[in-house]
Design a protein around this nucleic acid. Structure first.
Lengths: 222, 222
DNA sequence: CTAACACAACTCCTCAGACAAGTAGAGAAG
DNA sequence: CTTCTCTACTTGTCTGAGGAGTTGTGTTAG
């Protein structure tokens, strides 16, 4: 089966070089042959091999130093975090979210500022008002939990939360379509208790409330 | 302060294009002006602008189609997770590690297999034998905790743990050089208790032991 | 013999020009 | 209105030339 679309020589050359790097022909930190050597060796022009090198340099695999040469800086491109999440079981993602959100709730109870409490309470009322539509309710719920994590004042926990939510959104919407036990009064009570626990700086209860909420989410998705 | 190292024009051009993309001048999916237009506009040759485009293509920001043009495929390159960690305060990293490791210890208590227990106990004895040298002791400690996280059977938690440890290693070594309260018998007892709690599937105690150990680490580094 | 200097060979960087290959739109023919 | 063809424009590739930086070698002064 021949390919319909011609792949540019520069792209082919880049893949070829990457293969030879992965094979161990040029270990980490090694210097590649000069472009004047590499170009005839692959049967392409100098500008083509240069573009291939640039492409790999953009991916962080190679680095060029004028007058010195081209060097291997990484054995392969670092895998995108989103890709890891997309490939992983959704239950594992929820467990990871439980881990960071419980801790974040405890930290939020200790560290929250008045401004944090304002945005948390605002997000809670917004969450309560949007019980009708499924998607907007999920988004409001996510926004509320994000406000809690933000009150922990830890950029890593917040980054992790933000990287988890896109993966979870679809599953949550789908789940709500089947069983609508989410917009219930009981569910709302848990969230209100969480806010109150944070407000009175009760870290243990705040953490426990988060766990309660997320455990029910896990069992619903499992 | 002028820079000592000359930055290649192609790299400068790539950064310039990336800025204009981020500024919203060319939205997602838009077609950039042709190379023959862009090159004089930036005051560089055509091959130079081509290499800049290749570089951004390697980072996933642009895509070229022969005969058609160059198109924006992503608003910005996904930031490497390592870069985020390197830039962040080390206390925040420890807090994140506390979050995932406590949860992982609890999950490990529930899910560990006989093979998990073997590797955990092996790592514990190895950790105990290497109390003399600082660096090897830190590495043995890290290996032990990694074995615990691995027993949780959650790939995301393990990936997170692996991404945290490189950032923490330097700080732990430095801390041990100052106060050597780490290779103490008390410290070893905590780890032994953690293993026993996991072995008898006591999730609450396993989580608490992890927290004890890491809290002392946090206060030592703070 | 050692150390500092000059230089030559090598590397990547940049430009210019030419032609090939592919695409998309305008215009003509049906 | 549909279809075909052709033209203009785009990226792809190659070649040749010179500029700029690095590195190692050889020379020379001490």
């Amino acid at each position: 089966m021949a390919q319909v679309t011609r792949i540019p020589l520069a792209d082919q050359a880049a893949e070829l070089l990457l293969d030879r790097i992965r094979s161990g022909e040029w270990p980490l930190g090694a210097k590649l042959p000069g472009e004047t050597t590499l170009a005839p060796q692959l049967g392409v022009g100098r500008s083509t091999i240069r573009e291939a090198i640039r492409q790999l340099a953009g991916r962080g695999v190679l680095a060029t130093r004028q007058g010195s040469g081209v060097f291997v800086t990484a054995l392969e491109a670092p895998e995108s975090w989103d890709d890891v999440l997309r490939r992983t079981d959704i239950l594992a993602v929820i467990e990871a979210r439980i881990a960071i959100e419980c801790e974040a709730a405890a930290l939020a109870a200790e560290r929250h500022t008045p401004a944090d409490m304002v945005s948390i309470r605002l997000a809670l009322t917004a969450r309560d008002e949007k019980r009708s539509e499924i998607e907007s309710h999920v988004d409001a719920d996510t926004a509320f939990h994000r406000a809690v994590v933000a009150a922990a004042h830890n950029p890593i926990l917040l980054d992790l939360f933000d990287s988890f939510t896109p993966r979870l959104r679809g599953a949550m919407v789908e789940m709500l379509r089947l069983r609508s036990a989410f917009g219930s009064d009981e569910d709302h009570a848990v969230h209100r208790d969480l806010v109150e626990a944070i407000a009175r700086r009760d870290a243990a209860v705040a953490s426990a409330m988060s766990r309660t909420h997320l455990d029910s989410l896990r069992s619903a998705l499992g």
